[in-house]
Design a protein around this nucleic acid. Structure first.
Length: 886
RNA sequence: GGAACGUUAGCUCAGCUGGGAGAGCAUUCGCUUGACGUGUGAAAGGUCACAGGUUCGAGCCCUGUACGUUCCACCA
């Protein structure tokens, strides 16, 4: 029994049911299969704290499209999913939730706190995965991983030990970015620079042993002066050479500091004298190293002044600043205050102004590791789509600093370093050592720090496949094919995966990186919690369906570009879904219960062959564009084909034959029904990666024997489905229909008024084609509101009292004398003639240009010649029409 | 201070290796034509930011300018 589609398209009733079906059917699963080529994408692991937002929706839609497409192309397609432990985000969330319960993190201690974190993960970690289900994501959920699961942790440990042994990981006292709110160090990538309005304070430092002799420095951060250990001038600056080597009295303290010479000082800027605070400024830190200056840290971890701050101890950094400025003023040492805008580093998670501080931290030495990652894009092993992102990638890598990987957090992979409680010796090892090789002590304490979240995500493409074990999955699916992600995490993630991949596996972890932009609100603003302008993808799905959301996210968007979100566009997408739903319903209504005989192409009607020929081209275009990751163009092609050509033309043409019950008509009808079903089925396959739910429902209803469209073969272009003659015949028909509709509109002919129509053909070929065409059309007059269509060769008496439509191969007459307004007709025809004359002039001009004829490609020249001939013919016909009215 | 991207119809954006400017939405005028008014037929709307250059030919390539967006950057 034939199945039927529901009367109305209701995505909600559909999508959950079909997703369940897919899960049950196990279609998302991929496994090692020597008979197929693998295709692999690793999902950027969403944070366990995360809620699905538009960025995820876009990112995962793109991955799902590629995965579904490759699966249909016969690849063993693995989309490897998982979640990220999101060190800071989770720690902050759990801490907050504990605080709400009146529990203090510090009091319960590390072990207990971690138990809460794991509980939290158990409770909420799956939430975002369930939300991804609603999008239709065809990831292999059985393989879901977590950055802190056993295997991934093993990978982290292995990598850490390897890098340490190679000397690429070291512990050192260096200046790092410190977040006073989160109380942890962060990497350079996590610092956002924003311009802030501040001041330049000009301060005098008295020269020791002199009355009224000062050095004037300018600073944006007066409070750090308590940690000054020198003032630097440029050695070539004549103004100050006499001061080099002298000693200054550091105001507000009892310390004395030297004047040193260093090239770093810009003579043109400020006063030409720079206060040097090695413990609180990255540049000063370098200067301090060069001159062996003391590093005096004057801040506590929460950015209050410490005991080195003297009377300012305990004050917040900004309060200390105010007091210090006031005190300097009282001492007469403040020269002036000038407004000054400068870049301030803030923590990208909490927005707190970052404090550069000298700390004992763990670092990854980057110079050697960066090399293969740079080489990879230069030799083409790794490519970015769009290509412009290679530049950004390279620029960052070529200027990379060592990566601070230690975090003063509890939630994360703990650093495998142990300290002897007796002598303090540090031992880096997989497990706690038994005895200290130096002192024989047997008690050790593990380093309290954990690793940057990105340390584990850097290993994601191979750790999820079982590495460091040489698992069959790792051997088969690695390296992965394409990584899909937003440009905002190239530095955090993509780069670190690439150098980790080369270092650990000797290969780039993926061949291509497909970069997408941000989904912004309708005014082009970033969607953010604070602005409250975010749109919840789940809300969109509830209202319009996942298919509509997915289509919206890929339509009209080029790789790497930002896009704006409009509800109107979702509506348009839903309308498209509704359109194909109804078209399918109509087709199925007309399909017979029994078999449809597969017709020979020769017995098909021109319209049937035309649409087969057209979809054949669309198949090629869609595939080509998908090969280039131009998903927006690809889906546009399918959309336009289905709506304009298939629904608005082909189905309408098909209807013309449905009424014909003659034996011949029945035979033609079989061919048309077969074609309708064939083309609809192929279209659903093409559209499936983009709109998986509706295409599944339609396809399976259309082909009751099919289990799912997911595993059907991707359509292939075929030489046998090229019918250029039918294409040109149908475009002549379209020219006729459009022409008649236009003129009826222009002449205000009511739709109900049926007229006769005479087509006067220009030559025998045209006459033959039109006869053949109309003979195949059944009720051919329907689309042009004609009672009767007559085909004439050459001139016809129908001209009398007619309005005419001049086409390239014929002129059509509507013999309705009451329509004819002589003046109006002359005006209209004159207008047409003018257009034609212009076109002819253009073509003639080009062809008269010897350089064009000699230099342009022959095909192009030929094309212009053909056009010219056509225009000349049309001009002649129009002139003939005009004659009639003279 | 560098760099990238953008500037195309009223709005939002496509436009592949250069060969007669497109879509969606909005607008105007028609249509209960056997699936769809979430539809259908038609119309109007663009010196492709500006100025040069290359070319037989430029929205597309090159140079510069203006405006906008974003990224990077240790001028205290």
């Amino acid at each position: 029994m034939r199945k039927e589609l529901a009367k109305t398209y209701d995505p909600n009733g559909l999508e959950d049911r079909l997703y369940e079906k897919w899960l049950r059917g196990g279609y998302f699963r991929a496994s090692v299969n020597p008979d197929r080529k693998p295709f692999t994408i690793v999902m950027p692991p969403p944070n366990i704290t995360g809620q699905l937002h538009m960025g995820h929706a876009l990112d995962n839609t793109l991955q799902d499209i590629l995965t579904r497409w490759k699966r249909m192309q016969g690849f063993e397609a693995l989309w490897q999913p998982g979640t990220d432990h999101a060190a800071i985000a989770t720690e902050v969330k759990v801490t907050e939730s504990l605080r709400e319960q009146g529990i203090d993190k510090e009091k319960i201690g590390r072990e207990e706190f971690l138990r809460y974190c794991w509980d939290w993960r158990k409770e909420y970690g799956g939430r975002i995965i369930n939300q991804l289900h609603r999008l239709g994501s065809s990831a292999d959920w059985d393989k879901e991983r977590f950055t802190m699961d056993e295997g991934c942790s093993e990978a982290v440990l292995t990598v850490f030990l390897k890098l340490y042994e190679k000397g690429y990981i070291y512990k050192g006292s260096r200046i790092v970015n410190w977040c006073p709110k989160c109380q942890t160090s962060i990497s350079d990538a996590e610092v956002e620079h924003e311009d802030q309005d501040g001041f330049f304070w000009y301060i005098r430092y008295p020269v020791a042993g002199e009355e009224n002799m000062f050095v004037e420095v300018a600073t944006t951060r007066p409070e750090t002066m308590l940690g000054d250990t020198a003032v630097a001038v440029n050695p070539r600056d004549d103004r100050f050479t006499h001061l080099i080597g002298r000693t200054l009295k550091l105001p507000l303290t009892d310390r004395e500091i030297p004047v040193i010479a260093d090239e770093y000082v810009d003579m043109e800027f400020g006063t030409g004298c720079v206060k040097i605070t090695p413990a609180h400024d990255p540049n000063d830190f370098e200067v301090g190293k060069r001159h062996s200056l003391e590093e005096i840290c004057v801040l506590n971890d929460d950015a209050t002044m410490n005991e080195k701050g003297g009377k300012y101890a305990g004050l917040d950094r900004y309060e200390a600043r105010r007091r210090i400025v006031r005190d300097l003023e009282d001492l007469g040492l403040l020269v002036k205050v000038v407004p000054h805008s400068h870049a301030v580093g803030t923590h990208d998670r909490c927005g707190t102004t970052v404090e550069p501080m000298v700390k004992q931290q763990w670092f990854v030495r980057m110079d050697e590791l960066a090399k293969p990652a740079i080489e990879a894009v230069k030799n083409g092993e790794l490519t970015f789509v769009p290509e412009r992102y290679t530049k950004i990638y390279l620029h960052w890598l070529e200027n990379i600093h060592d990566w601070c990987i230690s975090r003063q957090l509890w939630w994360g992979h703990r650093i495998p370093a142990y300290y002897c409680r007796k002598c303090g010796k540090m031992i880096v090892s997989r497990t706690a050592p038994d005895t200290c090789p130096d002192c024989g002590g047997d008690s050790f304490e593990q380093d309290p720090d954990t690793l940057d979240t990105w340390f584990s995500s850097a290993l994601w493409p191979f750790s999820t496949l079982g590495w460091p074990e040489e698992t069959p999955e790792y051997r088969y699916f690695y390296p992965t094919d394409v990584l899909v992600t937003g440009y905002d995490i190239i530095f955090f993630w993509v780069i670190r995966m690439v150098f980790s991949g080369y270092e650990q596996t000797g290969k780039s972890p993926f061949h291509h990186v497909l970069i997408h932009g941000l989904v912004r609100d309708s005014q082009g603003r970033k969607m953010s919690k604070s602005l409250g302008n975010g749109i919840d993808p789940l809300d969109v799905i509830d209202r319009y369906g996942a298919d509509a959301l997915r289509l919206t996210l890929v339509t009209g968007n080029a790789p790497g570009n930002d896009m704006r979100f409009y509800w109107e566009q979702v509506e348009a997408s839903r309308n498209f879904a509704n359109k194909i739903w109804n078209a399918s319903r109509f087709i199925m209504m007309n399909l017979p219960d029994g078999e449809i005989r597969t017709p020979d192409p020769a017995e098909l009607k021109p319209a049937d062959r035309w649409i087969l020929s057209r979809i054949n081209t669309v198949v090629r275009e869609v595939t080509e564009n998908m090969d280039r990751y131009e998903l927006g163009i690809a889906v546009q092609k399918i959309h336009d084909f289905l709506w304009d050509e298939f629904c608005d033309w082909y189905i309408e043409m098909a209807k013309l034959t449905f009424g014909d019950e003659s034996p011949e008509g029945m035979k033609a009808k079989n061919g048309t029904l077969w074609t309708l079903r064939e083309v609809l089925g192929e279209s659903m396959k093409l559209l499936h990666p983009y709109m998986p739910f509706i295409t599944e429902e339609i396809y399976c209803t259309l082909n009751p024997e099919a289990e799912t469209v997911m595993t059907e073969a991707w359509p292939a272009w075929s030489e046998e489905r090229c019918f250029p003659e039918d294409e040109s015949m149908i475009s002549a028909y379209q020219e006729l229909v459009r022409g008649i509709r236009n003129i009826r509109m222009e002449m205000n002919v009511p739709a109900k008024t049926k007229t006769d129509l005479v087509i006067a053909c220009k030559d025998e070929g045209a006459e033959r084609d039109f006869r053949k065409l109309l003979a195949s059309m059944g009720d051919a007059g329907r689309m042009v509101s004609a009672k009767k269509i007559e085909i004439a060769g050459g001139r016809t008496e129908a001209e009398e009292g007619s309005v005419s439509v001049v086409m390239s191969r014929a002129t059509a007459y509507i013999p309705l004398s009451e329509l004819v307004d002589r003046e109006k007709e002359i005006a209209r025809l004159t207008d047409e003639l003018g257009k034609m004359v212009k076109e002819i002039a253009r073509a003639e001009g080009m062809l008269a240009n010897p350089k064009f004829v000699s230099k342009a490609p022959a095909a192009k020249v030929e094309e212009e010649r053909a056009k010219l001939a056509r225009y000349v013919a049309m001009r002649q016909q129009i002139e003939e029409q005009l004659e009639r009215f003279k």
